[in-house]
Amino acid sequence: MNVFRISADLLHLLSIFILLLKMQKTRSVAGISFKTQLLYTIVFIARYLDLFESHAEKSFELVTLYNIVMKIIFISSSVYTLYLMKKKFRATYDPNTDTFRIEYLLALCLFLALMFNYRFTVMEVLWTFSIYLEAVAILPQLFMLSRTGEAETITTHYLFALGFYRAIYLLNWIWRFHMEDYVDWIVWISGAVQTALYSDFFYIYYKKVLHGEKFVLP
C-alpha cells in the first residue's frame, strides 16, 4: 500500500459517491449510461469472486480487511446504481441515446481473457476478463456523451474522478515496480488503455468545466 494506491482508491470511491449524489439530488439518471453501469457491475462481480472463497487460511492483515470492505462497497453500490436506473428513476432514462453495442465488448474481452491470462482457471480467466472489461466499460458512456453533445457539470465531475483514478494507478504501478519489483502486464496495458480512452474527455473537462463553463462538445 502506498500513497498513490490509496489516493486512487479513494478517488474511485468519490466518483461513486458523486454519481449517487447526482442521481439523488436531481432525482434523475439523465446523461448516465445504463450500459456502462451494467458493465461495471459485471466487472466487480467477476473480479471480486474471491470474496466468496474461504478466508480461513489467509493471514489476516489490515490490507486484506481494507480490500474486503472496498470490494463489498464497489459491488453493492454498482448494484444499487442499476436499481436506481431501472426502477426508481426509470422514467428519466433515455435508452435512445444509450445505443452502444456492449455485446461486442463482452465477447472481445472474454476472447482476450481466454487467450491472454496468467493461469487457465475459472477464477483467473474471470479476473482477467474483468480487467479487460473495465478498460473499455466507459465506452457506452462516452458514446452517449458524444451523441448528446453536452453534460451536466456534476456528471462530468463523476466521469473525471472515474477516469483519473486509473491514471493515478499508473503512478502506483511505477512506484511498485521500483520498490517491490512488481510486474503485472495484463493490468498495466489495460490500465493504460483505460486512461487513454479518457484523453478527449479530460481535455474538454479541463478547457471548459474547470473554467466554470458548461461541458459542451466542440
Binding site: H12, L51, K58, E124, Y169
Partner: peptide, 10 residues
C-alpha cells in the same frame, strides 16, 4: 494461493 492473495489490488 487463491486469486485474492495474488491480485492484491482492487
Amino acid at each position: 494461493t487463491s486469486t485474492g492473495d495474488k491480485h492484491d489490488e482492487l
